[in-house]
Design a protein around this nucleic acid. Structure first.
Lengths: 183, 183
DNA sequence: CTCCTTGATTCGGTGACCGAACTCTTCCGC
DNA sequence: GCGGAAGAGTTCGGTCACCGAATCAAGGAG
């Protein structure tokens, strides 16, 4: 719950109805602008795939999580894949992975203005070891780093999670490649 | 109202309370994650500065706009500046301008997945005339384009606003430098 | 002085969100 | 096979933010 207990976000509902035209940001916000949605996407990028892991890590009400997952699957952002047993797991589609720049930009802005002890997470180009800038380019080799080649590492401003924050928080406080399932 | 009538977004509330720690994206969403907030920032980037222009262009309830503006001023994202007469105008601070990558990333994602007739807006490097990529770099000269040197131009997918959409929509459907006041 | 515009504030109604309890299925150890 | 535990949701009452229309106050124009 660590990451989540941080803050209660608020509300945001669905559009359902809209008239003829739209600027593209409105369309994007209709999909990912609701409360929790971008946090779900972020967790999915970090490798969270199971219902209970989202609940544990985000502290999101289960009913809301159910609705968000269904909606994101319907919009083609997530894909339901069979897990162990008859369980479902949730995986980002290519469209969903396309939201990575949004997540990165928001995190960078938050780090810049709300991390007094320094950045909480630093993203690194796998292999090259260069740092990934907000623009998505590697500061060392200049290459545009794909999501799969990005490694998340804790920064100086990341408070170590306490045990009661749950197992997912603990796993995500250690360096790990993005998209790699936590389980 | 054009841009807005597009869709009803939904709800999103404030955090007010939060415990000790937070990942940076949660902190960022506590500021700009509520309904309307990012649209207000986007409009401010496009040069909207007056209360009534936000209302006209976004279709946001006035009470909600009042609350959002106060909140954003309190957070240092917007700054109240005296306008003509005793009117107030609202202007982005440096911190607020730092949200431009977020707005650009969201718009780009929306354009990519929800603009069947092509992108709705294209951003161009002033002077150089090169197109600004999602990463913020100019595709022609490679330079990282600042907000003030970016010109917004309508793309092929932008539906021309009808007269009843209001004056602000009309102004914003023509090429113009970002941050330049619409009035 | 009066009307109009601008910048809000007020208010009733609605609906999404919260969280705790509950259900149902599957997995695991013996 | 049986009991318990864990996973994946579902249900439900209460609260609170949002919606939209009406209203208010102050400055400017005529």
């Amino acid at each position: 719950m660590t990451e989540l207990f941080c803050g209660r976000l608020g509300r945001m509902a669905l559009p359902r109805e809209y008239t003829n035209q739209a600027c593209s940001m409105v369309r994007a916000l209709e999909i990912v602008g609701e409360r929790w949605t971008l946090l779900i996407v972020r967790d999915a990028v970090f490798g969270v795939r199971r219902f209970s892991d989202f609940v544990e890590h985000l502290g999101i009400p289960r009913a809301v999580l159910t609705e968000r997952l269904e909606f994101l699957i319907g919009e083609g952002v997530l894909k339901r894949v069979p897990g162990p047993g008859k369980r479902s797991e949730y995986e980002l589609t290519a469209k969903g992975r396309g939201l990575w720049p949004v997540v990165r930009a928001l995190s960078a802005w938050g780090d810049e203005h709300y991390a007094p002890d320094g950045r909480r997470r630093v993203f690194v180009h796998a292999g090259c070891e260069g740092e990934v800038a907000q623009s998505g380019a590697c500061l060392r080799c200049g290459e545009d780093v794909t999501l799969a080649r990005t490694v998340m590492t804790p920064g100086p401003g990341l408070t170590p999670p306490s045990p009661e924050d749950g197992q997912v928080s603990a796993i995500l406080s250690r360096p790990r490649p993005l998209l790699q399932p936590v389980h």
